[in-house]
Computed example of a mutant assay.
Amino acid sequence: MLNLLRPFLRDRFLHLLLITGAILMCIAPFHFAALPQAIDWHTIITLAGLMMLTKGIEQSGCFDVLGMQMVKRFASERQLALFLVCAAGLLSTFLTNDVALFIVVPLTLTLKKLCAIPVSRIIIFEALAVNAGSLLTPIGNPQNILLWGRSGLSFGAFTWQMAPLALALFISLLLLAWFCFPAKPLAWQAHEKSHPWQPRLVWCCAALYLVFLVALEQKLALWGLAVVALGFLVMARRVLTGIDWSLLAVFMAMFIDVHLLVSMPSLNALLTPLGQASDLTLFASAIGLSQFISNVPATILLLNYVPASALLAWAVNIGGFGLLPGSLANLIALRMASDRRIWWRFHLYSLPMLVWAALLGYGLFLIS
């Protein structure tokens, strides 16, 4: 029980969100009965299922085996980093940004046990990569799903609309990674701890993953989560006790804080004029709002005042860079790293990337 409670007691970010929520409750109009409805339970259920499945694959030893094969194939730190960045970006275009991170980040953490690599820096670039890659397609991230549904565009038309920005940002990110990771040879080190290879657990995770995906498609997410949890309860209970459950509390607190924030009449008064604002004003406002309430809630809020245009789509996706709350994918990646220093190091790369993405994005929009 203590192992389950310890993450909640040590999570400073969760404590900050709870304090922020308490302050907002004092100044924003709300009803306690409406707070549970403010939480996107589909996201919470999906995240919980993915956390269990990823932890199961990790404890099966699958990432150890795959990591050893990767280390043998890549000669330098730069090659390995570029491969992981590309993998994160490409997976995010069709598997969504959070699913891509649940695949790539645990693999990266396993590689740390096999060779000396700057794992925190690689995870930072993976978080940036999924933000850049997921903006390409309508299903790459939640805000694109919302915008695609409102825009009336076909899958191909929406992808073509986003392609210039996605291509430019991903090339920029690869160039940055080229200079940030040296071409020094990978140095093998003693394998500190490895899980024995357990094919039975791998096949169990694969079967549960398929069940969970089908349940999500059939709008039976809660039943799918129950099947996954029951499967691990029978097959490997240690999976359930090894998960950082406080991450779910962080997401729920964020949803409630955003709900309280957007319910403030003063904020709605500020956003109403955006319907007649210039392109530059809308572009800057969408990016700025995303920095503080995340780009998905910002998209939901702004769609009440402006149409689902290409400019809005570009702006809220660019808003995923910069500050940590800009994208929930940032939070997922950094939490999985389990490194306190990564929180401020992330901003050394993400803030310049935000400035560059904003300048590049608006420039491309003007010439398109």
Rank of each mutant, 00 (worst) to 15 (best):
8 F>H: 10
10 R>M: 10
15 H>C: 11
20 T>E: 09
21 G>F: 00
23 I>Q: 00
30 F>W: 11
35 L>V: 14
43 T>M: 15
48 A>Q: 05
55 K>Q: 15
57 I>G: 01
62 C>N: 01
77 E>Y: 02
84 L>C: 12
90 L>E: 04
92 S>K: 03
109 L>A: 13
110 T>Q: 13
113 K>A: 13
123 I>T: 07
125 F>M: 01
130 V>I: 13
149 G>W: 00
154 S>Q: 04
162 M>H: 11
165 L>Y: 09
175 L>T: 12
175 L>R: 09
176 L>N: 12
192 E>N: 11
192 E>M: 03
194 S>D: 11
196 P>N: 05
203 W>A: 15
204 C>H: 09
205 C>L: 04
207 A>K: 03
209 Y>V: 13
228 V>S: 06
241 T>Y: 00
245 W>E: 09
250 V>A: 12
251 F>A: 04
251 F>Q: 02
263 S>Q: 10
265 P>R: 04
274 L>S: 11
274 L>Y: 03
275 G>Q: 11
278 S>T: 15
278 S>K: 04
283 F>A: 02
289 L>N: 03
290 S>K: 07
306 V>T: 12
318 I>M: 01
320 G>P: 02
320 G>H: 04
322 G>Q: 10
323 L>I: 00
325 P>L: 14
337 A>L: 03
343 W>S: 07
347 H>L: 13
361 G>H: 02
365 F>T: 00
